[in-house]
Write a protein that binds this DNA or RNA. Structure first.
Lengths: 243, 243
DNA sequence: AAGTGGTCTAGACCACGAA
DNA sequence: TCGTGGTCTAGACCACTTA
Protein backbone atom coordinates (compact mmCIF):
# COMPACT_ATOMS: atom_id res chain seq x y z
CA UNK A 1 0.00 0.00 0.00
CA UNK A 2 1.19 3.47 -0.85
CA UNK A 3 -1.19 5.36 1.37
CA UNK A 4 -0.45 3.64 4.63
CA UNK A 5 -0.54 6.94 6.50
CA UNK A 6 -3.93 8.14 5.32
CA UNK A 7 -6.85 8.03 7.76
CA UNK A 8 -8.83 4.84 7.58
CA UNK A 9 -11.98 6.53 6.39
CA UNK A 10 -10.05 7.97 3.45
CA UNK A 11 -8.73 4.51 2.63
CA UNK A 12 -12.22 3.06 2.77
CA UNK A 13 -13.50 5.96 0.65
CA UNK A 14 -10.74 5.40 -1.89
CA UNK A 15 -11.39 1.69 -2.20
CA UNK A 16 -15.13 2.15 -2.55
CA UNK A 17 -14.58 4.90 -5.11
CA UNK A 18 -12.28 2.70 -7.14
CA UNK A 19 -14.83 -0.09 -7.13
CA UNK A 20 -17.56 2.27 -8.25
CA UNK A 21 -15.47 3.73 -11.04
CA UNK A 22 -14.42 0.29 -12.22
CA UNK A 23 -18.07 -0.75 -12.15
CA UNK A 24 -17.54 -3.47 -9.55
CA UNK A 25 -20.55 -1.79 -8.03
CA UNK A 26 -22.79 -0.98 -10.97
CA UNK A 27 -24.99 2.05 -11.43
CA UNK A 28 -28.37 1.52 -9.80
CA UNK A 29 -27.08 -1.17 -7.48
CA UNK A 30 -26.67 -0.62 -3.79
CA UNK A 31 -23.48 -0.63 -1.78
CA UNK A 32 -23.30 -3.28 0.90
CA UNK A 33 -25.12 -2.06 4.03
CA UNK A 34 -23.04 -0.27 6.61
CA UNK A 35 -22.76 -3.24 9.01
CA UNK A 36 -21.40 -5.26 6.07
CA UNK A 37 -18.87 -2.57 5.23
CA UNK A 38 -17.71 -2.62 8.85
CA UNK A 39 -16.87 -6.28 8.48
CA UNK A 40 -15.34 -5.95 5.02
CA UNK A 41 -12.96 -3.20 6.00
CA UNK A 42 -12.60 -4.09 9.70
CA UNK A 43 -13.48 -0.61 10.87
CA UNK A 44 -16.16 0.91 13.05
CA UNK A 45 -19.47 2.31 11.95
CA UNK A 46 -18.25 5.92 12.30
CA UNK A 47 -15.42 5.25 9.89
CA UNK A 48 -17.66 3.57 7.36
CA UNK A 49 -20.16 6.39 7.54
CA UNK A 50 -17.54 9.08 7.03
CA UNK A 51 -16.26 7.30 3.93
CA UNK A 52 -19.74 6.89 2.47
CA UNK A 53 -20.54 10.48 3.33
CA UNK A 54 -17.55 11.57 1.23
CA UNK A 55 -18.80 9.55 -1.72
CA UNK A 56 -22.17 11.19 -1.30
CA UNK A 57 -20.64 14.66 -1.18
CA UNK A 58 -18.95 13.93 -4.47
CA UNK A 59 -22.21 12.82 -5.99
CA UNK A 60 -21.12 9.22 -6.54
CA UNK A 61 -23.82 7.67 -4.39
CA UNK A 62 -27.25 8.53 -3.10
CA UNK A 63 -27.96 7.62 0.51
CA UNK A 64 -31.53 6.79 1.52
CA UNK A 65 -32.56 5.99 5.04
CA UNK A 66 -34.36 2.69 5.24
CA UNK A 67 -33.38 1.67 1.71
CA UNK A 68 -29.66 1.74 1.26
CA UNK A 69 -26.92 3.55 -0.59
CA UNK A 70 -27.38 3.62 -4.33
CA UNK A 71 -24.59 3.97 -6.87
CA UNK A 72 -25.15 6.86 -9.27
CA UNK A 73 -23.97 7.37 -12.80
CA UNK A 74 -20.97 9.63 -12.84
CA UNK A 75 -20.94 12.20 -15.56
CA UNK A 76 -17.52 13.70 -16.17
CA UNK A 77 -18.80 17.23 -15.72
CA UNK A 78 -19.96 16.31 -12.26
CA UNK A 79 -16.61 16.56 -10.57
CA UNK A 80 -16.01 20.24 -11.00
CA UNK A 81 -17.20 21.52 -7.66
CA UNK A 82 -13.66 21.96 -6.48
CA UNK A 83 -11.06 24.60 -7.05
CA UNK A 84 -9.62 23.98 -10.49
CA UNK A 85 -7.88 26.09 -13.04
CA UNK A 86 -9.35 26.94 -16.41
CA UNK A 87 -6.94 24.67 -18.25
CA UNK A 88 -7.63 21.73 -15.95
CA UNK A 89 -11.35 22.15 -16.58
CA UNK A 90 -10.83 22.14 -20.31
CA UNK A 91 -8.51 19.16 -20.16
CA UNK A 92 -11.20 17.25 -18.29
CA UNK A 93 -13.50 17.92 -21.19
CA UNK A 94 -10.96 16.63 -23.66
CA UNK A 95 -9.63 19.90 -25.05
CA UNK A 96 -5.93 20.56 -25.44
CA UNK A 97 -5.13 24.04 -24.22
CA UNK A 98 -2.00 26.01 -24.51
CA UNK A 99 -1.16 29.62 -23.88
CA UNK A 100 0.22 32.36 -26.09
CA UNK A 101 1.51 35.84 -25.52
CA UNK A 102 2.41 35.09 -21.94
CA UNK A 103 3.53 38.19 -20.15
CA UNK A 104 4.34 38.65 -16.49
CA UNK A 105 5.15 41.94 -14.84
CA UNK A 106 5.64 43.15 -11.30
CA UNK A 107 3.44 46.16 -10.67
CA UNK A 108 1.99 48.18 -7.82
CA UNK A 109 -1.52 46.88 -7.22
CA UNK A 110 -4.31 48.93 -8.82
CA UNK A 111 -7.07 50.02 -6.49
CA UNK A 112 -9.68 47.49 -7.62
CA UNK A 113 -7.23 44.60 -7.38
CA UNK A 114 -5.99 45.75 -3.98
CA UNK A 115 -9.57 45.83 -2.79
CA UNK A 116 -10.21 42.28 -3.96
CA UNK A 117 -7.04 41.00 -2.33
CA UNK A 118 -7.58 43.05 0.84
CA UNK A 119 -4.18 44.72 0.66
CA UNK A 120 -2.92 48.29 0.54
CA UNK A 121 -3.20 49.79 -2.95
CA UNK A 122 0.28 49.95 -4.44
CA UNK A 123 1.53 46.86 -2.67
CA UNK A 124 3.43 44.89 -5.33
CA UNK A 125 1.59 42.18 -7.22
CA UNK A 126 2.53 40.01 -10.16
CA UNK A 127 0.28 40.50 -13.14
CA UNK A 128 0.19 37.61 -15.58
CA UNK A 129 -1.52 37.93 -18.95
CA UNK A 130 -2.20 35.02 -21.26
CA UNK A 131 -4.26 34.03 -24.26
CA UNK A 132 -5.75 30.55 -24.07
CA UNK A 133 -5.61 28.68 -27.36
CA UNK A 134 -7.74 25.66 -28.23
CA UNK A 135 -7.63 24.07 -31.68
CA UNK A 136 -5.27 26.82 -32.83
CA UNK A 137 -7.86 29.45 -32.09
CA UNK A 138 -8.05 31.91 -29.20
CA UNK A 139 -10.70 30.94 -26.68
CA UNK A 140 -10.12 33.23 -23.75
CA UNK A 141 -8.07 35.96 -22.14
CA UNK A 142 -6.69 35.41 -18.68
CA UNK A 143 -5.30 37.95 -16.30
CA UNK A 144 -4.00 36.78 -12.94
CA UNK A 145 -2.89 38.97 -10.09
CA UNK A 146 -0.80 37.26 -7.41
CA UNK A 147 0.58 38.61 -4.15
CA UNK A 148 4.25 39.21 -4.87
CA UNK A 149 5.51 37.90 -1.55
CA UNK A 150 3.83 34.56 -2.20
CA UNK A 151 5.66 34.00 -5.50
CA UNK A 152 9.17 35.51 -5.27
CA UNK A 153 11.04 35.75 -8.55
CA UNK A 154 7.94 34.61 -10.42
CA UNK A 155 8.42 36.90 -13.39
CA UNK A 156 11.69 35.24 -14.41
CA UNK A 157 10.67 31.63 -14.06
CA UNK A 158 7.40 31.15 -15.87
CA UNK A 159 8.49 30.96 -19.48
CA UNK A 160 6.85 27.66 -20.21
CA UNK A 161 3.97 26.50 -18.09
CA UNK A 162 1.02 24.33 -18.93
CA UNK A 163 -1.14 25.07 -15.94
CA UNK A 164 -0.57 27.94 -13.58
CA UNK A 165 -2.02 26.07 -10.63
CA UNK A 166 0.24 23.07 -11.18
CA UNK A 167 3.17 25.46 -11.53
CA UNK A 168 2.33 27.24 -8.28
CA UNK A 169 2.07 23.93 -6.48
CA UNK A 170 5.33 22.49 -7.76
CA UNK A 171 7.43 25.65 -7.56
CA UNK A 172 6.03 27.41 -4.53
CA UNK A 173 4.06 24.68 -2.80
CA UNK A 174 0.97 26.87 -3.09
CA UNK A 175 -2.45 25.23 -3.16
CA UNK A 176 -5.63 27.23 -2.99
CA UNK A 177 -8.16 26.12 -0.42
CA UNK A 178 -11.21 27.81 -1.87
CA UNK A 179 -12.33 30.38 -4.39
CA UNK A 180 -15.20 32.76 -5.07
CA UNK A 181 -16.30 33.21 -8.66
CA UNK A 182 -18.51 36.01 -9.95
CA UNK A 183 -19.85 35.25 -13.40
CA UNK A 184 -21.42 37.65 -15.82
CA UNK A 185 -21.79 38.34 -19.54
CA UNK A 186 -20.37 41.44 -21.17
CA UNK A 187 -19.68 42.79 -24.65
CA UNK A 188 -16.09 42.42 -25.86
CA UNK A 189 -14.25 45.75 -25.91
CA UNK A 190 -12.18 46.52 -29.01
CA UNK A 191 -8.81 45.40 -27.73
CA UNK A 192 -10.15 42.09 -26.45
CA UNK A 193 -12.29 41.33 -29.49
CA UNK A 194 -9.33 41.80 -31.81
CA UNK A 195 -7.17 39.40 -29.85
CA UNK A 196 -9.95 36.84 -29.56
CA UNK A 197 -10.91 37.20 -33.20
CA UNK A 198 -14.56 38.03 -32.60
CA UNK A 199 -16.60 41.07 -33.64
CA UNK A 200 -16.51 44.14 -31.46
CA UNK A 201 -19.19 43.83 -28.77
CA UNK A 202 -19.50 40.06 -29.09
CA UNK A 203 -20.70 38.35 -25.88
CA UNK A 204 -17.99 37.23 -23.50
CA UNK A 205 -18.45 35.11 -20.43
CA UNK A 206 -16.53 36.96 -17.74
CA UNK A 207 -15.41 35.28 -14.55
CA UNK A 208 -13.88 37.22 -11.70
CA UNK A 209 -12.23 34.86 -9.25
CA UNK A 210 -10.75 35.43 -5.85
CA UNK A 211 -8.67 32.50 -4.61
CA UNK A 212 -7.94 31.86 -0.96
CA UNK A 213 -5.30 30.08 1.08
CA UNK A 214 -6.82 29.49 4.46
CA UNK A 215 -8.93 32.63 4.80
CA UNK A 216 -6.49 34.93 3.03
CA UNK A 217 -7.13 36.09 -0.55
CA UNK A 218 -3.94 35.58 -2.56
CA UNK A 219 -5.05 35.68 -6.19
CA UNK A 220 -7.43 37.66 -8.31
CA UNK A 221 -8.27 36.37 -11.78
CA UNK A 222 -10.10 37.98 -14.64
CA UNK A 223 -11.25 35.48 -17.25
CA UNK A 224 -12.90 36.54 -20.49
CA UNK A 225 -14.14 33.63 -22.55
CA UNK A 226 -15.76 33.72 -25.97
CA UNK A 227 -19.47 33.20 -25.42
CA UNK A 228 -21.05 29.96 -26.61
CA UNK A 229 -17.63 28.27 -26.70
CA UNK A 230 -17.50 27.32 -23.09
CA UNK A 231 -19.94 26.33 -20.40
CA UNK A 232 -19.40 26.92 -16.76
CA UNK A 233 -20.84 24.08 -14.70
CA UNK A 234 -22.24 24.37 -11.18
CA UNK A 235 -23.83 21.74 -9.01
CA UNK A 236 -25.92 23.00 -6.13
CA UNK A 237 -27.04 20.89 -3.23
CA UNK A 238 -29.91 20.70 -0.83
CA UNK A 239 -30.46 23.54 1.56
CA UNK A 240 -29.31 23.57 5.16
CA UNK A 241 -32.09 22.74 7.63
CA UNK A 242 -34.80 25.32 8.17
CA UNK A 243 -34.91 26.49 11.75
CA UNK B 1 -38.50 25.52 22.15
CA UNK B 2 -40.13 25.15 18.77
CA UNK B 3 -37.72 22.65 17.36
CA UNK B 4 -37.87 20.06 20.06
CA UNK B 5 -37.83 17.28 17.50
CA UNK B 6 -34.74 18.36 15.60
CA UNK B 7 -31.53 16.37 16.09
CA UNK B 8 -29.31 17.76 18.79
CA UNK B 9 -26.50 18.62 16.42
CA UNK B 10 -28.91 20.75 14.40
CA UNK B 11 -30.00 22.52 17.56
CA UNK B 12 -26.39 23.18 18.53
CA UNK B 13 -25.66 24.34 14.99
CA UNK B 14 -28.64 26.68 15.06
CA UNK B 15 -27.70 28.22 18.38
CA UNK B 16 -24.09 28.75 17.37
CA UNK B 17 -25.19 30.22 14.05
CA UNK B 18 -27.50 32.63 15.76
CA UNK B 19 -24.74 33.76 18.09
CA UNK B 20 -22.39 34.29 15.17
CA UNK B 21 -24.94 36.25 13.19
CA UNK B 22 -25.80 38.40 16.20
CA UNK B 23 -22.08 38.98 16.74
CA UNK B 24 -22.04 37.37 20.15
CA UNK B 25 -19.05 35.65 18.67
CA UNK B 26 -17.24 38.34 16.73
CA UNK B 27 -15.40 37.98 13.45
CA UNK B 28 -11.82 36.94 14.02
CA UNK B 29 -12.56 35.50 17.45
CA UNK B 30 -12.57 31.81 18.14
CA UNK B 31 -15.47 29.66 19.18
CA UNK B 32 -15.09 27.94 22.54
CA UNK B 33 -13.01 24.78 22.15
CA UNK B 34 -14.91 21.59 21.53
CA UNK B 35 -14.63 20.27 25.09
CA UNK B 36 -16.17 23.57 26.25
CA UNK B 37 -19.00 23.27 23.77
CA UNK B 38 -19.70 19.77 25.08
CA UNK B 39 -20.25 21.22 28.53
CA UNK B 40 -22.20 24.26 27.34
CA UNK B 41 -24.68 22.22 25.33
CA UNK B 42 -24.52 19.00 27.38
CA UNK B 43 -23.82 16.85 24.35
CA UNK B 44 -21.05 14.53 23.28
CA UNK B 45 -18.04 15.39 21.21
CA UNK B 46 -19.51 13.80 18.08
CA UNK B 47 -22.55 16.02 18.29
CA UNK B 48 -20.50 19.16 18.81
CA UNK B 49 -18.26 18.29 15.90
CA UNK B 50 -21.15 17.68 13.54
CA UNK B 51 -22.64 21.06 14.39
CA UNK B 52 -19.35 22.88 13.90
CA UNK B 53 -18.78 20.97 10.69
CA UNK B 54 -22.08 22.33 9.38
CA UNK B 55 -21.04 25.88 10.20
CA UNK B 56 -17.81 25.26 8.36
CA UNK B 57 -19.62 23.88 5.31
CA UNK B 58 -21.62 27.07 5.20
CA UNK B 59 -18.49 29.14 5.36
CA UNK B 60 -19.30 30.73 8.71
CA UNK B 61 -16.23 29.43 10.51
CA UNK B 62 -12.75 28.24 9.66
CA UNK B 63 -11.52 25.20 11.56
CA UNK B 64 -7.80 24.82 12.19
CA UNK B 65 -6.27 21.86 13.93
CA UNK B 66 -4.19 22.88 16.88
CA UNK B 67 -5.49 26.46 16.86
CA UNK B 68 -9.21 26.58 17.13
CA UNK B 69 -12.32 27.47 15.17
CA UNK B 70 -12.32 31.00 13.87
CA UNK B 71 -15.42 33.04 13.13
CA UNK B 72 -15.42 34.42 9.57
CA UNK B 73 -17.04 37.49 8.12
CA UNK B 74 -20.22 36.53 6.36
CA UNK B 75 -20.88 38.31 3.13
CA UNK B 76 -24.50 38.07 2.02
CA UNK B 77 -23.52 36.66 -1.36
CA UNK B 78 -21.83 33.80 0.40
CA UNK B 79 -24.91 31.79 1.16
CA UNK B 80 -25.93 30.96 -2.36
CA UNK B 81 -24.42 27.53 -2.69
CA UNK B 82 -27.81 25.91 -2.29
CA UNK B 83 -30.70 25.37 -4.61
CA UNK B 84 -32.51 28.68 -4.89
CA UNK B 85 -34.72 30.26 -7.45
CA UNK B 86 -33.78 33.31 -9.44
CA UNK B 87 -36.18 35.54 -7.55
CA UNK B 88 -34.96 34.36 -4.18
CA UNK B 89 -31.41 35.17 -5.21
CA UNK B 90 -32.39 38.64 -6.27
CA UNK B 91 -34.39 39.22 -3.12
CA UNK B 92 -31.31 38.30 -1.07
CA UNK B 93 -29.48 41.06 -2.88
CA UNK B 94 -32.19 43.55 -2.09
CA UNK B 95 -33.97 43.71 -5.44
CA UNK B 96 -37.72 43.53 -5.74
CA UNK B 97 -38.68 41.21 -8.56
CA UNK B 98 -42.00 40.57 -10.13
CA UNK B 99 -43.05 38.78 -13.25
CA UNK B 100 -44.93 39.88 -16.34
CA UNK B 101 -46.42 38.09 -19.32
CA UNK B 102 -46.79 34.87 -17.43
CA UNK B 103 -47.94 32.10 -19.68
CA UNK B 104 -48.32 28.42 -18.91
CA UNK B 105 -49.17 25.75 -21.42
CA UNK B 106 -49.32 21.98 -21.43
CA UNK B 107 -47.32 20.64 -24.35
CA UNK B 108 -45.71 17.44 -25.56
CA UNK B 109 -42.04 17.63 -24.57
CA UNK B 110 -39.68 18.75 -27.33
CA UNK B 111 -36.72 16.46 -27.98
CA UNK B 112 -34.08 18.56 -26.24
CA UNK B 113 -36.23 19.02 -23.15
CA UNK B 114 -37.11 15.34 -23.05
CA UNK B 115 -33.43 14.52 -23.20
CA UNK B 116 -32.65 16.81 -20.28
CA UNK B 117 -35.48 15.37 -18.20
CA UNK B 118 -34.72 11.80 -19.24
CA UNK B 119 -38.23 11.11 -20.45
CA UNK B 120 -39.79 9.97 -23.72
CA UNK B 121 -40.10 12.82 -26.23
CA UNK B 122 -43.71 13.85 -26.41
CA UNK B 123 -44.49 13.02 -22.81
CA UNK B 124 -46.54 15.99 -21.54
CA UNK B 125 -44.72 18.81 -19.76
CA UNK B 126 -45.85 22.18 -18.49
CA UNK B 127 -44.05 25.06 -20.14
CA UNK B 128 -44.01 28.28 -18.13
CA UNK B 129 -42.78 31.53 -19.66
CA UNK B 130 -42.15 34.69 -17.69
CA UNK B 131 -40.41 38.03 -17.92
CA UNK B 132 -38.61 39.09 -14.75
CA UNK B 133 -39.01 42.77 -13.96
CA UNK B 134 -36.75 44.74 -11.62
CA UNK B 135 -37.14 48.50 -11.14
CA UNK B 136 -39.85 48.48 -13.79
CA UNK B 137 -37.43 47.20 -16.39
CA UNK B 138 -37.11 43.72 -17.86
CA UNK B 139 -34.08 41.89 -16.50
CA UNK B 140 -34.47 38.34 -17.71
CA UNK B 141 -36.55 35.79 -19.57
CA UNK B 142 -37.43 32.56 -17.82
CA UNK B 143 -38.73 29.37 -19.34
CA UNK B 144 -39.47 26.43 -17.04
CA UNK B 145 -40.39 22.93 -18.13
CA UNK B 146 -41.97 20.76 -15.46
CA UNK B 147 -43.02 17.13 -15.57
CA UNK B 148 -46.78 17.26 -15.91
CA UNK B 149 -47.50 14.42 -13.53
CA UNK B 150 -45.65 16.25 -10.75
CA UNK B 151 -47.83 19.36 -11.02
CA UNK B 152 -51.38 18.36 -11.94
CA UNK B 153 -53.68 21.20 -12.96
CA UNK B 154 -50.75 23.61 -12.80
CA UNK B 155 -51.81 25.65 -15.81
CA UNK B 156 -55.02 26.81 -14.15
CA UNK B 157 -53.66 27.74 -10.77
CA UNK B 158 -50.62 29.90 -11.26
CA UNK B 159 -52.11 33.27 -12.05
CA UNK B 160 -50.32 35.14 -9.32
CA UNK B 161 -47.12 33.78 -7.95
CA UNK B 162 -44.12 35.55 -6.52
CA UNK B 163 -41.68 32.70 -6.54
CA UNK B 164 -42.19 29.50 -8.46
CA UNK B 165 -40.23 27.45 -5.98
CA UNK B 166 -42.28 28.70 -3.05
CA UNK B 167 -45.41 27.98 -5.06
CA UNK B 168 -44.32 24.45 -5.85
CA UNK B 169 -43.55 23.81 -2.21
CA UNK B 170 -46.81 25.16 -0.84
CA UNK B 171 -49.13 23.78 -3.53
CA UNK B 172 -47.52 20.49 -4.44
CA UNK B 173 -45.11 19.92 -1.57
CA UNK B 174 -42.29 19.78 -4.10
CA UNK B 175 -38.78 20.70 -2.98
CA UNK B 176 -35.79 20.21 -5.21
CA UNK B 177 -32.86 18.38 -3.68
CA UNK B 178 -30.17 19.48 -6.09
CA UNK B 179 -29.62 21.16 -9.43
CA UNK B 180 -27.08 21.32 -12.22
CA UNK B 181 -26.48 24.67 -13.87
CA UNK B 182 -24.72 25.23 -17.18
CA UNK B 183 -23.75 28.84 -17.69
CA UNK B 184 -22.72 30.51 -20.89
CA UNK B 185 -22.87 33.84 -22.72
CA UNK B 186 -24.76 34.28 -25.97
CA UNK B 187 -26.00 37.07 -28.22
CA UNK B 188 -29.65 38.00 -27.79
CA UNK B 189 -31.78 36.82 -30.72
CA UNK B 190 -34.28 39.33 -32.14
CA UNK B 191 -37.35 38.17 -30.28
CA UNK B 192 -35.58 38.13 -26.93
CA UNK B 193 -33.78 41.42 -27.39
CA UNK B 194 -37.03 43.21 -28.18
CA UNK B 195 -38.72 41.91 -25.03
CA UNK B 196 -35.71 42.70 -22.87
CA UNK B 197 -35.22 46.10 -24.43
CA UNK B 198 -31.63 45.63 -25.48
CA UNK B 199 -29.99 45.82 -28.91
CA UNK B 200 -30.10 42.80 -31.15
CA UNK B 201 -27.09 40.59 -30.38
CA UNK B 202 -26.49 42.10 -26.95
CA UNK B 203 -24.75 39.72 -24.50
CA UNK B 204 -27.03 37.59 -22.40
CA UNK B 205 -26.00 35.39 -19.52
CA UNK B 206 -27.72 32.10 -20.22
CA UNK B 207 -28.28 29.51 -17.52
CA UNK B 208 -29.60 26.05 -18.28
CA UNK B 209 -30.70 24.33 -15.12
CA UNK B 210 -31.79 20.79 -14.44
CA UNK B 211 -33.43 20.34 -11.04
CA UNK B 212 -33.63 17.04 -9.23
CA UNK B 213 -35.84 15.43 -6.63
CA UNK B 214 -33.86 12.58 -5.21
CA UNK B 215 -32.00 11.45 -8.32
CA UNK B 216 -34.81 12.15 -10.76
CA UNK B 217 -34.74 15.24 -13.01
CA UNK B 218 -38.10 17.01 -12.76
CA UNK B 219 -37.49 20.50 -14.08
CA UNK B 220 -35.57 22.11 -16.90
CA UNK B 221 -35.07 25.87 -16.83
CA UNK B 222 -33.77 28.23 -19.44
CA UNK B 223 -32.76 31.60 -18.02
CA UNK B 224 -31.63 34.48 -20.20
CA UNK B 225 -30.39 37.47 -18.23
CA UNK B 226 -29.22 40.82 -19.56
CA UNK B 227 -25.43 40.82 -19.36
CA UNK B 228 -23.74 43.09 -16.84
CA UNK B 229 -26.96 43.40 -14.84
CA UNK B 230 -26.56 40.28 -12.84
CA UNK B 231 -23.72 38.28 -11.39
CA UNK B 232 -23.84 34.60 -10.76
CA UNK B 233 -21.91 33.69 -7.64
CA UNK B 234 -20.13 30.39 -7.01
CA UNK B 235 -18.05 29.31 -4.08
CA UNK B 236 -15.75 26.36 -4.67
CA UNK B 237 -14.11 24.40 -1.92
CA UNK B 238 -10.95 22.45 -1.37
CA UNK B 239 -10.36 19.32 -3.37
CA UNK B 240 -11.05 15.81 -2.15
CA UNK B 241 -7.94 13.98 -0.95
CA UNK B 242 -5.42 12.89 -3.55
CA UNK B 243 -4.99 9.14 -3.57
C1' DA C 1 4.29 20.94 27.47
C1' DA C 2 -0.33 22.14 27.00
C1' DG C 3 -4.31 22.71 24.41
C1' DT C 4 -6.55 22.49 20.12
C1' DG C 5 -8.97 19.85 16.54
C1' DG C 6 -8.68 14.89 14.01
C1' DT C 7 -9.44 9.99 14.10
C1' DC C 8 -11.50 5.83 15.88
C1' DT C 9 -13.93 2.42 18.68
C1' DA C 10 -17.96 -0.32 20.63
C1' DG C 11 -22.23 -0.02 21.61
C1' DA C 12 -27.00 1.80 22.00
C1' DC C 13 -31.31 3.42 20.37
C1' DC C 14 -34.26 5.88 16.75
C1' DA C 15 -36.64 6.70 12.10
C1' DC C 16 -37.75 5.27 7.78
C1' DG C 17 -38.90 2.02 3.83
C1' DA C 18 -40.15 -2.36 2.07
C1' DA C 19 -42.15 -6.79 2.53
C1' DT D 1 -41.54 -6.92 11.27
C1' DC D 2 -37.02 -6.50 9.67
C1' DG D 3 -33.20 -4.27 7.73
C1' DT D 4 -31.61 0.02 6.34
C1' DG D 5 -29.39 4.45 7.42
C1' DG D 6 -29.56 8.43 11.33
C1' DT D 7 -28.37 10.00 15.89
C1' DC D 8 -25.76 9.87 20.09
C1' DT D 9 -22.69 8.57 23.89
C1' DA D 10 -18.20 7.98 26.59
C1' DG D 11 -13.89 7.35 26.12
C1' DA D 12 -9.30 6.82 23.93
C1' DC D 13 -5.39 8.19 21.37
C1' DC D 14 -3.17 11.03 17.49
C1' DA D 15 -1.49 15.36 15.04
C1' DC D 16 -0.86 19.95 14.87
C1' DT D 17 -0.01 24.79 16.71
C1' DT D 18 1.65 27.72 20.03
C1' DA D 19 4.24 28.98 23.82
Amino acid sequence: MINQKLPRYVQVYARLKKQIESHSYKVGEFLPPEPELEKIFHVSRTTVRKAVEMLSQEGLVYIQQGRGTEVLNVTPTQKLQYVTSFSETLKEQGFQVHYRDIEAVLIPSPIDVAEMLQIQPGKPVVRLDRVAIVHDKPLALLTNYLLEDMVPNFVNTIKKMKSLYEFLESEYNLVFDSANDFITAKPAPKDESSILGVPDGYPLLQVRRISFIKTRPVEFVLLRIIGNKYEYFVHTKERPPKL
